[in-house]
Every structure is written in C-alpha cells, then in structure tokens.
C-alpha cells in the first residue's frame, strides 16, 4: 500500500538534521518505547507487523510525529488489537498516574 512512509524521492524535506555526539535515546520515554517494542515484538508480534503498524498511522500524524512517537503509536495499536490491553485501560491509567503527580 502506498503511504507517507514510502519516502524515497519525495521533495521538500529540508536539510539533513545532523546532531553532533548524539545520545542513543533522547529521553527516558524513548528508551522505554524502544525496549517495550523490542520485548513485545520478540514475543507477541513479529517485527514486520510492528513496522506495518507504524505505516498505518494517518498520514498527517505520520508526517508530524517524531520517530519514537511513531513507534509508540505502533506499540499501542498492536497491544490493543491483540487484546493485551484495552484503550480504556490506558486512558484510565493515564488519569490515575497524572492524579498521583499532584
């Protein structure tokens, strides 16, 4: 299927963002998204399904998200589609954790 991920030859993407001495992850959440994806795609879904999940992101979102935000989208899509966690559980847990912060 065609989509925004098929990016070879696309115009208008600007200069290459080259970072000096870049760290492997830019934040703790990036590291966690990577590790949770790695742990689940070894055990619950194959890596191809994970990549395809990120390609199912709506094009507007795909083009305005950072790399690990796309991974997060894929992870959330797969764990909910495979009924490991429900979307309601995620929203409820977010609400609970954000209350605990105050």
């Amino acid at each position: 299927m065609n989509g925004p991920h098929d990016m070879g030859g696309m115009h208008g993407m600007g200069p290459i963002p080259i970072e000096a001495d870049e760290s492997v992850f830019h934040s703790q959440w990036e590291a966690k998204v990577f590790a949770m994806s790695f742990a689940t795609f070894c055990n619950y879904f194959p890596v191809d399904e994970t990549r395809h999940a990120s390609e199912r992101m709506p094009p507007g979102d795909y083009l305005t998200s950072s790399y690990y935000e796309r991974w997060l989208y894929a992870l959330e899509l797969l764990i909910t589609e495979h009924n490991l966690v429900t979307p309601e559980e995620i929203e409820q847990r977010i609400a609970k954790l954000s209350q605990e912060e105050y």
Binding site: M36, T40, L72, E76, I79, L84, I90, R93, I94, L97
Partner: peptide, 9 residues
C-alpha cells in the same frame, strides 16, 4: 502515556 502503558504491561 508511556509510563501508563509500561505499568499496565
């Protein structure tokens, strides 16, 4: 969001 998912999983 990531912490919520991590804690559930």
């Amino acid at each position: 969001r990531v912490r919520a998912i991590e804690s559930l999983l």
